[in-house]
Computed example of a mutant assay.
Amino acid sequence: MIKQYIKNAGKYMKVNVQNTSMLHYWKYFADGLKYTLIISIVGSIIGIILGVLLALMRISKFKPFSWFSISYTEVVRGTPMMVQVLLVYFGLGVLVNIPALTAGIIAVSLNSGAYVSEIIRGGIASVDKGQSEAAKSLGLSKKDAMVSVILPQAFKNIWPALGNEFITIIKESSIVSIIGVTDIVYELNIVRADTYRGVSPIVVAMVMYFVLSFTLTRVLNYFERKMNHD
């Protein structure tokens, strides 16, 4: 009787036929890649703009600008990016309803700006002072000399360092997953929970980050060689 009961019960047992291969979840990883690229690209652009402003404020003779730039840079570089992401998301959330993606982009941009400002400041300092004197002798104002003469040469000198910062942003942007941004790390955790496979999704994410970093490194090296030949 017991055997018959088990036999009948077995007919109603659900069999797990779900496809748990990583290829089956490619759309999840594709979505994660999309948002990772959005955060990295927008964060890099805003970070460069902010970095230029902070660098110019740092070397300004107007002390409040210089103090603000120094304070901002030291605070950002001295605190974890995770804390900065949480501060932006929940801090701004008190004032306005801000989407997680927007908060992530803002946090990454603010963080990158501090590091880029130091890179650019070093690049400006590396330009020979004779360039400034030459620009002055041609009748250029300090502003025109900085925009037309100093900054272009500074960017050429700091291109490798800027490239490293771009790569760092791609990798460090994974921290935004803690506020629910659907980047690569967020999606890999969804796949892990859905498939009960702990290692495979992580390996896929590692490969994706490696391909992004490797590709960007080769592209940046190409432009660096091109600039050196010009």
Score class of each variant (00 low, 15 high):
E118M: 10
D128E: 11
N164I: 01
K143S: 10
V219M: 06
A100N: 05
Y186H: 14
L92P: 02
K7D: 14
L37D: 01
I6H: 13
I124G: 00
E74L: 05
I59N: 08
L23E: 03
F223I: 11
V96P: 04
Q153D: 03
A55C: 00
R192K: 13
S71P: 02
Y25V: 10
K142P: 06
I41Y: 04
M22Y: 03
G122S: 06
T215N: 15
V76C: 02
T36Q: 04
I70S: 11
F223W: 04
A100Y: 04
N221W: 02
I120D: 01
K11N: 11
D194H: 13
M146V: 01
I158F: 07
L216D: 01
I2Q: 12
A205E: 04
V96F: 15
L37A: 11
S148L: 13
S174F: 07
V75N: 05
I6V: 10
A30R: 10
V76R: 05
A30K: 13
V15R: 10
V108I: 15
R58G: 00
V83H: 09
P152R: 06
H229W: 14
K136I: 13
I190A: 08
E224D: 14
K63N: 15
V94N: 14
V42L: 14
K3F: 03
I2R: 15
I70G: 08
F68R: 09
A125P: 00
